[in-house]
């Protein structure tokens, strides 16, 4: 990669203060270094956030509060996360490789750029990089979006986001002008808004905190990542289900699909079917079928539909049958 200036940030505000064109902030560095090696980005300066004390805290006084540098490995192993937000723990445990989980941070994971092989290769100047063509439309789109895929067919790369959105997480952003908190679901943006971006981070903003609402004994959750290879693979399809139960009835359902759309995708029709009813095979199947209604698969990714139907159904049942 091209070399750069390197500076260790004193603290997160110091990092934010330095944000400017040509300056990037590094957390775990996993996504950043991949992009630098490919030549997709060539910053003049890298500001290192890693190593700043206190940014990796994971606390659960009621809700779950995550510092931006909390690693996926820390989340996977955290007793509170495993017990009270199991879908999140599962998502973290199945991400990447053990080595990468030790390095990757929650902030970096949420802000990472897509894995679309046209985007990730310097060989293709695609629409997302300022070009005029989305190569996936007519090309190799096996791994791409099955919905909201006409402008740009990326799938959102964060499987952790799938679980966090299902839990109703929020994210706090801080920039030079101050802070704002928004639901994680609104953090991600569709290509139509601005095809060159995947989220609302302003050029001078960093993620400083992620909060996940408290769960109760009535919360039931499950997460499933469907891969081709168990060992190490990006998802073909993933799903997170969080149910608020009242006895055997589901009061409120949250069903979020990953690897389906450019953003974590709420299967709203599935949620509508589940809300107010007993979760059984029949309900789960109806919800799963509903999740795939209105999808617009591309030439090579239609196989994702039966896979989603299967895993949405199974994950709803796993959530309903499991503990909080």
């Amino acid at each position: 990669m091209k070399s750069f200036e390197w500076v260790q940030a004193h603290n997160i505000d110091d990092a934010i203060a330095q944000l400017a064109p040509g300056v990037v902030v590094k957390a775990g560095g996993v996504d950043l270094i991949d992009r630098l090696k490919e030549g997709l980005d060539a910053p003049a300066r890298v500001v290192n956030l890693r190593g700043v004390a206190g940014l990796d805290a994971v606390t659960a006084p009621g809700e779950l509060v995550l510092g931006p540098l909390a690693t996926l490995a820390e989340l996977e192993a955290n007793a509170d996360v495993k017990k009270r937000w199991p879908a999140l723990a599962t998502a973290c445990a199945h991400a990447a490789t053990p080595q990468i989980r030790n390095m990757a941070t929650i902030g970096g994971n949420l802000a990472q750029r897509p894995r679309c092989w046209y985007f990730r290769s310097a060989d293709f100047h695609c629409r997302k990089k300022g070009g005029t063509i989305c190569y996936a439309q007519e090309g190799e789109n096996q791994l791409h979006a099955i919905v909201e895929n006409r402008t740009c067919a990326i799938v959102h790369p964060s499987s952790i986001a799938t679980a966090l959105v299902a839990y109703g997480a929020s994210v706090k952003l801080r920039g030079k002008k101050g802070e704002r908190t928004l639901p994680l679901e609104q953090f991600f943006t569709l290509p139509e808004k601005d095809v060159t971006r995947e989220n609302v981070l302003a050029p001078d903003e960093l993620i400083v905190e992620v909060r996940v609402p408290a769960t109760t004994a009535a919360t039931r959750a499950a997460y499933h990542k469907q891969v081709e290879k168990e060992s190490f693979d990006w998802p073909l399809a993933d799903v997170a289900v969080v149910l608020e139960m009242s006895g055997r009835t589901c009061k409120k359902a949250s069903v979020v699909l990953g690897a389906a759309a450019p953003v974590p995708w709420r299967a709203k029709s599935s949620e509508a079917i589940l809300g107010g009813r007993t979760i059984d095979e029949h309900a789960a199947e109806a919800a799963a079928n509903a999740a795939m209604q209105g999808t617009t698969p591309l030439a090579k990714n239609g196989y994702k539909l039966p896979i989603f139907r299967a895993i949405v159904r199974r994950t709803i049942l796993a959530a309903a049958g499991g503990a909080a």
Binding site: W117, Y135, L143, K229, F232, W234
Partner: peptide, 25 residues
């Protein structure tokens, strides 16, 4: 191996999308 027909280039010339069996397989 996946080739992009539009440009004649391989799109998975790496080891995460060129998939090889590993421990769990």
């Amino acid at each position: 191996r996946h080739m992009d027909r539009q440009t004649g280039r391989m799109v998975n010339a790496n080891l995460d999308q060129y998939k090889i069996a590993m421990a769990k397989e």
